[in-house]
């Protein structure tokens, strides 16, 4: 306990940040607790103290990565964007694997999908993260004044599924991210009568 008491409260965050990077670069199966501990500058027993199992660490790393992406979004001033169309386009961008933090998040997502098949206990984490994305995007769609026949929640489900399906192809290297972006935006623009050319810039 002395080590834990003496550790600054940032240790947990450092472990999570290190885990996110290791999972993104090595994959969850090759993620070694000892390596994460070394990257975070803590002992392996401290990692085990905070996270009982690998699955617990993966689940929390995902939540952590999602929160961090949310901070990036706010820092980008997305909420200050007064034009609802541009704001929606910037939301679409946040759902695609642009290089950097977003790409890292994406690799984690992929690992989570994989795990969920054999570790149903991770399901609620995934469903919770998805629900937050869904509510966030629904609001962005609703702000664009959709035609009466459009249900913003259903359109958000379709848009997120498109981002996931196209994003995975970008990640594997099958297409350029600009192309995926233009596809998602083109579809949203057709449904919402928005400016399709906005997504091509």
């Amino acid at each position: 306990m002395t080590e834990i008491a003496a550790t600054e409260c940032g240790a947990r965050e450092r472990i999570l940040a290190a885990a996110v990077e290791r999972i993104a670069s090595d994959g969850i199966d090759d993620m070694r607790i000892a390596r994460v501990a070394m990257d975070a500058g803590v002992s392996t027993s401290l990692v085990h103290y905070h996270f009982e199992t690998r699955e617990a660490l993966l689940g929390e790393a995902l939540e952590f990565s999602y929160e961090r992406a949310g901070e990036v979004r706010r820092a980008d001033g997305e909420e200050a964007e007064p034009d609802p169309q541009r704001r929606l386009l910037s939301m679409v961008d946040q759902c695609l694997p642009y290089p950097g933090v977003l790409r890292q998040d994406w690799v984690l997502w992929l690992e989570l999908w994989l795990r969920t098949v054999r570790h149903p206990e991770l399901g609620p984490t995934g469903a919770r993260l998805y629900e937050r994305m869904h509510d966030w995007l629904s609001e962005g769609i609703a702000a664009c004044g959709p035609p009466p026949a459009i249900d913003p929640g259903e359109l958000a489900d379709r848009a997120l599924a498109l981002c996931d399906g196209l994003g995975v192809r970008v990640l594997i290297g099958e297409m350029a991210i600009e192309y995926a972006r233009a596809q998602v935006w083109g579809y949203l623009a057709r449904e919402l009568n928005l400016d399709a050319s906005l997504g091509e810039g």
Partner: peptide, 18 residues
Amino acid sequence: LLLGSLLDGLAVQIALGD
């Protein structure tokens, strides 16, 4: 491409137990 991607993305949502 659009429909194939959509179906993949929805399969993921189903797998996550949403």
